[in-house]
């Protein structure tokens, strides 16, 4: 189990302040909702938590059994789905999951069951992503984020482009994973906000 601790995390891009001193903790079994209007820094904050962006001030720590992990050891524990992250359009849904399973060292995994859990019918599993709608791509992206059973799951607008059925399936996925992972959800959707045990509002 991994806990993510962040202290006074701030970010500036040039002269513009995007985040101002956010502190808190992401704990296993709990869902942290990161809320705020467009441009309030939700995606930036998740990128900082993922180690993809360096904060201008403050720090982020990953703790496993009270041991602080090196940043290179964060990545195997992490699952991320975000709007600015794409998968390979020339590969099929199944090939994309196979690729990320190989990269993550996941040897036995039922990709088909995961895709079906997220509502992608078997008929689409072997079609290239380039032929998919935005909602279908989002389902594959979410499958990619969770196939290695991450200890930390960062979801940026997870129901974006999804229909009502898709939203229900993502809610089901979060419910299934919350016992084994620390989850952060960046959202403006009131239905997604309801998943949270705690929240951070970046509006101020």
């Amino acid at each position: 189990m991994v806990t993510v601790r962040f202290r006074d995390v701030a970010k500036r891009f040039g002269g513009q302040r995007v985040l101002a001193g956010v502190s808190g903790e992401l704990r296993p079994g709990r869902v942290l909702v990161v809320a705020g209007p467009n441009g309030s820094g939700k995606s930036t904050f998740l990128n900082i938590l993922a180690g993809l962006l360096r904060p201008s001030r403050g720090d982020v720590q990953y703790l496993e059994d009270d041991r602080v992990l090196d940043q290179e050891d964060w990545y195997p524990t992490l699952g991320v789905a975000a709007p600015d992250m794409a998968l390979y359009e020339e590969l099929t849904a199944f090939e994309n999951l196979q690729l990320f399973a190989r990269l993550r060292g996941v040897h036995a995994h039922d990709h088909a069951a995961l895709l079906e859990e997220l509502g992608l019918a078997a008929a689409h599993h072997h079609k290239p992503l380039g032929a998919f709608s935005s909602g279908m791509k989002q389902r594959v992206k979410l499958a990619q984020a969770v196939l290695h059973r991450p200890s930390v799951l960062l979801l940026d607008e997870p129901s974006a482009n999804l229909d009502e059925d898709g939203h229900r399936r993502v809610a089901g996925l979060v419910t299934r994973l919350r016992s084994e992972a620390a989850i952060a959800v960046a959202t403006n959707d009131p239905r997604e906000m309801a998943w949270g045990d705690a929240s951070i509002d970046l509006a101020g």
Binding site: P76, T77, Y88, E90, L91, E95, L99, R102, L103, R104, G105, V106, P128, H148, S151
Partner: peptide, 25 residues
Amino acid sequence: MHRSTLLAESLAVLGKEVASELRRR
């Protein structure tokens, strides 16, 4: 926590590059 070997990861990246290139050219 899963972790692949460096060789397996490198070959996975190579396989992805070859498959992508054969389709997009």
